[in-house]
Amino acid sequence: MPHDAPEHAPGHAHDHDHAAIEADEPQGYYQHLAAATRSLLIEKGVFSAGDMRAMIEKIDERSPAVGARIVARAWTDPDFRERLLAQGKKTMKEEMDIDPVVADIVVVENTADVHNVVVCTLCSCYPVFILGRPPDWYKSYAYRSRTVRDPRGVLREFGTEIDPGREVRVHDSTADMRYLVLPMQPEGTEGWPEEKLAVIVTRDTMVGVAEAQAAG
């Protein structure tokens, strides 16, 4: 195999808990590999330390609040909603100046008849520049394997019970095609201003593992 780990890579006996890695933990092989790669790229002029800092800042500032603004706008503006469902990336970019950066974005709409949920079975494709970084559970083997096999069961583990009369559609993301769920607007929020609606649109409702609630 052409891409085997270098001989000194600890491909075994890797027993620390990844959920508990902290920045001040003793540096292991992979942290050194990351630092070596980064420093060589900087020395060769591929990018600068300043570019690195700015990119981290750019990713850090993306959060589910960006997606929530898009959903709130769609709830209050039917024409925008129609264009968003027809051409996700183009509409976000041209009408809200929100650039999903990588990949196309398909917006899928929850209705009284259909509930949508998003997964990436092969890896962890996710609309990072609209929702921020994916949570650990989205990248977990359990979520990746079972969401396409038993979506209602997985949703139940998130406390979300979908009425048997509603169809559940599962969307499997790829590097070039990512999804945003347009949740149903909760009853009792008609007439709310966009800013107030955006507050009740959470990350999980836009992945489809929860439904929007008026209480937020």
Partner: peptide, 19 residues
């Protein structure tokens, strides 16, 4: 791994660290 059964989903959310 799509379609396999790798157990229940743990609701983990660890903060990403600097490296």
């Amino acid at each position: 791994m799509g379609g396999l059964d790798k157990g229940p989903v743990a609701p983990s959310e660890h903060e990403i660290v600097l490296w």
